[in-house]
Design a protein around this nucleic acid. Structure first.
Lengths: 151, 151
DNA sequence: ATTATTGTAACTATATTAGTTACATATGTC
DNA sequence: GACATATGTAACTAATATAGTTACAATAAT
């Protein structure tokens, strides 16, 4: 199975909090308006981010705080927070016939190859920081506004 | 969503054909016995492999042929055959609010980062060949038999 | 006190995947 | 050529995962 939009939405939430802090009340309602989902979904994801130590929230208060500097939170940290460490990009078929040469050995074989491919992708996610994402968003927004200006 | 077992099962099918060719009748029934699925599922996957030019089959005849040398079929070729080129490992939320700074720019931003992570994983899959998988399977099988021998 | 908000459980709707049933079409053997 | 066996594929069903909804207790803010 493909990785769900939970990952994308969680990055979105953190970027939103960083960019709009002090400018908008950071209620799950307002955040949900930007993600275009329900406030409950937002709170559920924020709960996972809080449990992973990436976000600080106070029950009843609409003022979440990002727990670390933006260049010290990687996309992989966020991935782990919302998908967990057991989430794999590829899926091994666990039920193949153990008495067959292929069925009995392909699981360990593919586990090895898949792991290498996953580590390559994860290494990229470790490199990319929340700070980079926010910079990209702000640059793209500035480009949009400059284009709009130019008549 | 995670990548389905279609990918793993397709690798299994090709390895099975290579290892058991001439030793067992290569019916979808026999292959399905090793994958522990139904013959129809096997034929469906073999159909995708055939359309991608990785396998040659004859309607009504239980004698599939792998179309290229085993070291010229990568795991990525197999991935493309059964999952298609549009299949992504990560999912972008397409419905975020376009009028928001974050919602309006995060899609293009994440598309970029996700693409880099995916390419890193795909590059590994390109490196790994069907020949490597079959070698690994046979080595693991030999190890098992040697261990069994040793009393 | 009252209103707004978070945190979470339980449920529903939707989508994807795997598996099944059915059958037309082809092969291979007697 | 008839018959048994096999492939190729469509249509349906079952199982599972994800996203979204409803409901409500607990907390905060005024």
């Amino acid at each position: 199975m493909r990785i769900s939009t939970r990952f994308s939405d969680s990055i979105h939430i953190l970027a939103f909090i960083s960019i709009y802090k002090g400018k908008l009340p950071l209620t799950s309602e307002n955040i949900a308006g930007s993600v275009k989902t329900s406030p409950v979904v937002v709170r559920r994801l924020m709960s996972a981010l809080r449990k992973a130590g990436l976000l600080k929230t106070v029950h009843g208060s609409a003022d979440p705080q990002i727990a670390r500097p933006l260049d010290q939170i990687s996309l992989y940290d966020i991935f782990l927070a919302v998908e967990g460490p057991k989430r794999h990009l590829f899926t091994i078929d666990e039920k193949t016939a153990p008495e067959c040469i292929v069925g009995g050995n392909i699981q360990a074989t593919l586990a090895d190859y898949y792991h290498q491919a996953e580590v390559a992708a994860e290494a990229k996610l470790v490199q990319f920081k929340l700070a980079d994402v926010i910079d990209s968003i702000l640059v793209k927004q500035a480009q949009k506004e400059a284009t709009k200006e130019r008549k």
